[in-house]
Design a protein around this nucleic acid. Structure first.
Lengths: 145, 145
DNA sequence: AAATTAATGAGAATTAGTCTCAGTCTCATT
DNA sequence: AATGAGACTGAGACTAATTCTCATTAATTT
């Protein structure tokens, strides 16, 4: 399997774009931790590691990472977008606890099938889906009693 | 079945808040058309109907409508949130065409079951879900050939 | 009616994200 | 090694969505 760097390099090459140190730094940091993140977090993490990168470059790089299929926009909350890296991970969706805001990833074959079924029923050719289930985790359920 | 106005009035009363003419106008306009909308559209529609309401009041009212379960945040796009009224409608999710941006509503029992199943598997008590399926509608599929 | 409380509009403030532009870097060609 | 074309960068100006402030108004309670 190709490394994310290879994937990104090929993607950029195909678009006649360059793999610059800044883009590489963003890519690396995005894959450095397995957690959802937002632009500001990424900026701060990069700065802490001594990278001298501007916010503008991060904002410019993110859509490229999304377009190349390495990264996903997970949700919009607190007034800004949140991302996750997805390359190298099986497709998954999210459970979100309305109490503590914890997020749990899950995988479910039924949902994959539903995508196909619903696509057919509506004459759509599905390319993917995003499912969020809201609710309360066991701890928060306890507290609510 | 209660009217949306009754639902909203009860919700507000429960929170010690008032059902003002402005809040009522927003509520009414939200249910006046069955279509997704954003704040600005709503503001313009209200103005066109002669309502003298400020954007601030609309922004203040929307979270109340969402919290009371009458309205849903559908998605974040073009830099702002889009809403739909849901009270009185069966729960549904959305197919989104990546070509023409058309949105089609669908209902699927399998997804409802998946919600329960996934909740149980992860020790969550689900209260709802949001599923978006991305893809291409038949027209856009043609064009892409 | 007075006091209290909630809500409003207007516009200032904030914030995420985009855009501009002058200077830099890369790379293919001389 | 120098050149030129394009791609890329950072800094900060800009835009647009949303929130906040505050003086005023409206409703409710006393």
């Amino acid at each position: 399997m190709k490394s994310e760097l290879e994937v990104f390099a090929e993607f950029l090459a195909l678009k006649g774009m360059r793999l610059t140190p800044e883009r590489e730094a963003v890519l690396e940091e995005v894959f450095a931790e397995h957690d959802h993140f937002d632009i500001d977090e990424l900026f701060i993490r990069l700065r802490q590691k001594g990278q001298r990168i501007s916010r503008a470059s991060i904002y410019r790089t993110m859509p490229l990472l999304v377009e190349s299929g390495l990264v996903n926009e997970v949700y919009f909350e607190d007034g800004h977008l949140h991302y996750e890296h997805i390359y190298g991970h099986e497709h998954h969706c999210h459970l979100r606890c309305l109490g503590c805001r914890k997020i749990v990833e899950f995988r479910d074959d039924g949902v994959e099938e539903a995508e196909k079924r619903i696509g057919q029923a509506n004459n759509f050719e599905p390319t993917g889906h995003k499912l969020e289930i809201f609710g309360y985790c066991s701890q928060c359920r306890e507290k609510r009693r």
